[in-house]
Design a protein around this nucleic acid. Structure first.
Ligand SMILES: [Mn+2]
Ligand SMILES: [Mn+2]
Ligand SMILES: [Zn+2]
Ligand SMILES: [Zn+2]
Lengths: 137, 137
DNA sequence: TTATCAAATAAGAATTATTCTTATTTAACA
DNA sequence: TGTTAAATAAGAATAATTCTTATTTGATAA
């Protein structure tokens, strides 16, 4: 993922291109876990000593608003950010609080079929969140 | 659900029976939504003016510890409590933040089968959380 | 029934992830 | 290169939850 590619991602979504936005997007994209705002901040602050945590929050949130990234709450009430935007599930480890992606087409298809076949008359489903909770071994 | 029945639930789980525990369990059980600790507190405080919010938190948590109730995080990072302990899914309204139960045996069976058929070698699944996010109409 | 004591509660302080406010800086564009 | 709206840094404010401690209470046994 080149600097130019990231720059285009950001400008295409209608946001000004800034150093902070580049660094934050890059850090999130390279993270294999699903970092919190604070973890992103820790990742980048040694190389960017003047960056502020408030900016990390605000920037991540504008990325969410423009559809560049996703966010969701974890079991501890902390926001987690995800550079992957297409439908996928998560494995949550109750011990380490790590969250790993679980991509499985069959599961996505099963759920999609289930929703199509069970239209609820008083609720419009927009997205489905599936979290497998347990512990890694 | 009689007072005696609630009392037995509480004492059978190894907890002392107290007025606060009775009132809190009763309030949660009567709630059709999935109330927050603060909502439970609001529900009961006019009839129990000396009860404290800290007690509501602590009591709900000991109910969770003994398996009497469940709890989970909502999308806003607020704990929600659920008197229903068997497996079921939830509908989350993005507008009102209401959470409704969605009980569907077919879905539970589909998910159960999926897990049995896809044992992950480095992760032990203990529970599955399925939330349909959208809006009520 | 009454005394005992571990457990539960009330009150308020502390914690912490997140949001808000405001002065300063900067990217985009004319 | 100057203008300006938007972005940022810094720190204060917020709010759900947890923690601390003094007081009260439920369960048990004398
Ligand atoms: Mn919070
Ligand atoms: Mn919190
Ligand atoms: Zn993910
Ligand atoms: Zn429920």
């Amino acid at each position: 993922m080149t600097t130019e590619f990231i720059k285009n991602k950001i400008t295409d979504s209608g946001l000004k291109f800034t150093h902070q936005r580049w660094v934050i997007y890059d850090a999130l994209h390279q993270a294999d876990s699903h970092p919190t705002a604070d973890q992103v901040f820790e990742d980048i602050k040694s190389a960017n000593p003047s960056i502020s945590l408030g900016t990390v929050y605000k920037t991540l949130d504008s990325f969410v608003q423009t559809g560049l990234i996703q966010k969701f709450m974890d079991q501890n009430g902390v926001m987690r950010f995800d550079a992957i935007i297409d439908a996928h599930s998560h494995l949550y480890c109750k011990e380490t609080h790590e969250i790993k992606d679980f991509r499985n087409e069959e599961l996505e298809k099963i759920i999609h079929n289930f929703i199509s076949g069970h239209k609820l008359k008083d609720f419009e489903v927009e997205e489905v969140s599936i979290v497998f909770k347990g512990r890694k071994k």
